[in-house]
Nucleic acid binder design. Structure first.
Lengths: 128, 128
DNA sequence: ATTGTTGCAAAAATTTTGCATTATC
DNA sequence: GATAATGCAAAATTTTTGCAACAAT
């Protein structure tokens, strides 16, 4: 029978869940290091792996060789502004034509990763 | 003044361009090793970096810690099978609802990266 | 007590880089 | 001959893992 609790596990999840920055393992570790000095990076990795198995977090992207995660597991896409570098969450209601076609053809979609890159409205509006 | 030519560079690009497997650097290297025994993996990495700068290839996804690339730079999405690790091309005809909404709201989309993850038809069909 | 979790450091694995040598122009 | 490209191996990164110590039930 599994205990499935530890104070560090809880702290790691809270840190992931309380940011919209789509953090990396290293970022989570850095955040917690002050609060929990004897935390080790291996533990962060082990817990991230566990949370993924449990479906409590998802992998959002791999940026510069680092995996970036998100505790918002709802179906949403992202828009990255190439000028101001803000990341917008895009919560879509409808299924895309592609998803419908995949399902129709017997593919199981566990997760999708949709990232648009361009200029956000604010940056488009500014004279430039 | 740049020469910008070498037989190895040419061979590396041809190998990338002549497959639809969305290869990794290691795969390209393995393919060419027979033909060019004194090729080094570093050269493959250096040329992949160059091709990306030049816009001749794009990064499609990071599968199991390996970056996977594509010489097809046309606008298309991908499906990554979590079981067999194959990467499928998805050429969409229609615009997604999200793209329409972004355009309507004054966002300029320069590039999009759409990757579905799940189980491909072959892997779904196999008893497992 | 038993079983799960962690720290630590070593090991894997992928990618990058420094420098002498080689290829291209 | 000048400049760019490469081989090789070492280094840098990110992630995983083995094992003894520790925490939770």
């Amino acid at each position: 029978m599994g205990h499935n609790y530890s104070s560090k596990r809880e702290a790691i999840f809270k840190t992931i869940a309380s940011t919209k920055s789509h953090p990396s393992a290293a970022w989570v570790y850095e955040q917690l290091k002050e609060e929990i000095p004897n935390l080790s990076l291996g533990t962060v990795y082990r817990n991230i792996a566990l949370f993924k198995e449990q479906g409590r977090i998802i992998t959002v992207a791999n940026v510069d060789g680092e995996e970036r995660i998100d505790a918002d597991t709802s179906d949403h896409a992202h828009f990255v502004c190439e000028k101001c570098h803000r990341v917008f969450d895009l919560h879509s209601s409808e299924q895309s034509p592609l998803e419908k076609e995949l399902s129709r053809n017997g593919f199981i979609i566990n997760r999708k990763n949709v990232v648009f890159h361009g200029e956000c409205r604010d940056c488009c509006e500014s004279i430039n």
